[in-house]
Amino acid sequence: MNPPSSAGPVAGTPAYCSMLEREADDFSRTRATNAPGDRSDVQRLVMLLRPYGPSGLLDLCTLLVLCAVDLCPTELRDGQGRPDLAKLIKGNSDALTTIDAASSANARLHRGAVTADDLTSAEEQAERIIGLEPVVAAALQTRTGHAKARRNVRRALSEQGDGVREATAVFGILSDVMEAVGRKTARSGA
């Protein structure tokens, strides 16, 4: 899906790639400096990439994986020296997390109190995120210097589907990854 010319560069063009690289770099920095719970940068990127559909979001996620691989501090890596998803994110979803996610979504959409349908939807998304964590973990095993690194990461991220729900779940996981990497890097003064 390509946006109208006034909305942004055409997908797949050098201008599109430059925009995604710039946004991935900026996002890597903002995740570390935002207050806990501040997802304004996440929302901004989702809106920016909306005209490109889930494919645009997965293209950005590909670059975020490569940033995470490059920037991940040693203590958040596994024995092979690759980013360890278990050390980067908690992956736990409990009832309070589900209610908080549904309440936050309703507040942003000006929909009022959380309903049973909202909770079911939030629970389904939490399950989807947990189910996609192994996909992100596999993508984080990529060696960034490899000639086909970008293509390999994109393929890994699309393995379980490339629809809106999968793309937003992968982006949610990578948001947490980039926050952990950024905060740890900022604390260590790197």
Rank of each mutant, 00 (worst) to 15 (best):
Met1Trp: 15
Asn2Pro: 13
Pro3Gly: 14
Pro3Lys: 06
Pro4Phe: 08
Ser5Cys: 07
Ser5Ile: 08
Ala7Pro: 01
Gly8Pro: 09
Val10Glu: 11
Val10Asp: 12
Ala11Cys: 09
Tyr16Leu: 15
Tyr16Gln: 11
Cys17Gln: 12
Met19Arg: 08
Glu21Leu: 11
Glu21Phe: 02
Arg22Lys: 14
Glu23Phe: 12
Glu23Ala: 02
Glu23Gln: 13
Ala24Trp: 02
Asp25Cys: 05
Ala32Asn: 03
Asn34Lys: 11
Ala35Lys: 14
Pro36His: 08
Asp41Asn: 14
Arg44Leu: 05
Arg44Lys: 09
Arg44Cys: 04
Val46Ile: 12
Val46Asp: 07
Met47Pro: 10
Tyr52Ser: 07
Gly53Cys: 13
Pro54Ala: 15
Leu57Lys: 08
Leu60Asp: 01
Cys61Val: 06
Val65Ala: 02
Leu66Tyr: 14
Cys67Phe: 11
Ala68Arg: 02
Ala68Met: 13
Asp70Gly: 07
Asp70Asn: 14
Leu71Phe: 08
Thr74His: 05
Thr74Ile: 04
Arg77Met: 08
Gly79Leu: 10
Pro83Thr: 03
Asp84Pro: 01
Leu85Glu: 02
Leu85Thr: 02
Leu88Tyr: 01
Gly91Glu: 00
Gly91Met: 04
Ser93Asn: 10
Ala95Arg: 11
Leu96Ser: 04
Ile99Gly: 07
Asp100Thr: 11
Ser103Gln: 06
Ser103Val: 03
Ser104Met: 09
Ser104Gln: 14
Arg111Thr: 03
Gly112Gln: 15
Gly112Val: 10
Thr115Asp: 12
Ala116Tyr: 00
Asp118Trp: 01
Asp118Asn: 06
Asp118Ala: 06
Thr120His: 15
Ser121His: 09
Glu123Asp: 12
Gln125Glu: 14
Gln125Leu: 12
Gln125Pro: 00
Glu127Thr: 07
Arg128Thr: 10
Ile129Glu: 07
Leu132Ala: 10
Glu133Tyr: 00
Pro134Val: 04
Ala137Met: 05
Leu140Met: 09
Thr142Phe: 01
Thr142Ser: 08
Thr144Val: 11
Thr144Trp: 11
Lys148His: 12
Asn152Phe: 03
Asn152Arg: 06
Arg155His: 15
Ala156Phe: 03
Glu159Cys: 13
Gly161Ala: 09
Gly161Ser: 12
Asp162Lys: 06
Asp162Met: 10
Gly163Leu: 07
Val164Asn: 11
Glu166Trp: 07
Thr168Gly: 09
Ala169Met: 04
Phe171Trp: 05
Ile173Arg: 01
Leu174Pro: 09
Leu174Gln: 01
Ser175Gln: 04
Asp176Trp: 07
Asp176Glu: 11
Met178Asp: 07
Ala180Val: 04
Gly182Tyr: 00
Ala186Lys: 07
Ala186Trp: 13
